[in-house]
């Protein structure tokens, strides 16, 4: 069989302009190519930041950052396209989002690379569930990459852990816990977390209920 000829849902493809434009709040007909150029600009800006992550990691003895700037290029576009496929896949009998979707082709390969790179930086508590959640919520991947850089600014080489958690009230609103493990005194760690929240996460994560970032004192 030479590739799958089943179609992607037009209803979901119609969301593409909104999804792409919302990345940087550019107006649509500016067009989406405007949004794409913003993405590239962001990636270029991210380049030096990644270099600084590398320096911090090197100084902390973590040399294998496995973050390739080239690999990140166009990632957001691919992730958005992928997200649409996943939304389609979710349109099952119960609207379930717990089924792991393995996309095929280059987008699937790209997602595999990204999840491997995430795994290099984060310890997964519950491996299967965490990976499954990431596959079904692949738009979290760029956020997790950026979180590394933001966290390292305040917590240096602290160990980062990801844990898939289910909403205790059983509403189905499941999420990832990102634990920053630190051996610093509690007051110092909390001050740093507050600064981290104030300078990035409160704004970046204000509409993001699928990721909770907290500290874990060793």
């Amino acid at each position: 069989m030479s590739g799958i000829t089943q179609s992607l849902p037009e209803k979901e493809l119609d969301k593409l302009p909104t999804v792409l434009a919302s990345i940087k709040n550019v107006t649509h007909e500016a067009g989406v190519s405007g949004a794409a150029s913003f993405i590239h600009q962001d990636i270029d800006t991210l380049g030096p930041d990644l270099a600084s992550i590398q320096r911090i990691a090197d100084s902390a003895g973590q040399t294998n950052m496995a973050l390739s700037i080239d690999c990140l290029r166009y990632w957001e576009e691919a992730a958005n396209a992928l997200h649409i496929s996943i939304d389609w896949k979710r349109m099952s009998e119960q609207g379930s989002s717990t089924e792991v979707f393995r996309p095929t082709g280059r987008i699937g390969d790209l997602l595999d690379q990204k999840i491997d790179a995430i795994r290099d930086q984060y310890s997964f508590y519950n491996n299967v569930e965490t990976e499954g959640f990431l596959r079904n919520n692949s738009d979290l991947v760029p956020i997790l990459f950026e979180a590394i850089y933001r966290i390292r600014k305040y917590f240096g080489a602290a160990q980062l852990k990801l844990r898939y958690s289910e909403d205790p009230e059983g509403t189905g609103d499941n999420y990832l816990d990102l634990a920053i493990t630190t051996d610093e005194p509690v007051d110092t760690a909390l001050e740093k977390l507050e600064a981290f929240d104030r300078h990035w996460w409160l704004e970046a994560g204000k509409d993001e209920s699928r990721l909770i970032i907290d500290i874990e004192i060793e």
């Binding site: 992607l8 593409l16 302009p17 649509h28 067009g31 989406v32 949004a35 576009e77 396209a81």
Partner: peptide, 29 residues
């Protein structure tokens, strides 16, 4: 209106059809 043209995706709306092109797939609806 609503056309998209970025390196990995092209999407064009016309009054008769919608055309979406990914690297692996072209969809004519």
């Amino acid at each position: 209106s609503g056309a998209i043209n970025i390196p990995h995706l092209s999407r064009i709306n016309t009054k008769d059809f919608r055309l979406t092109v990914f690297p692996e797939q072209l969809q004519f609806s």
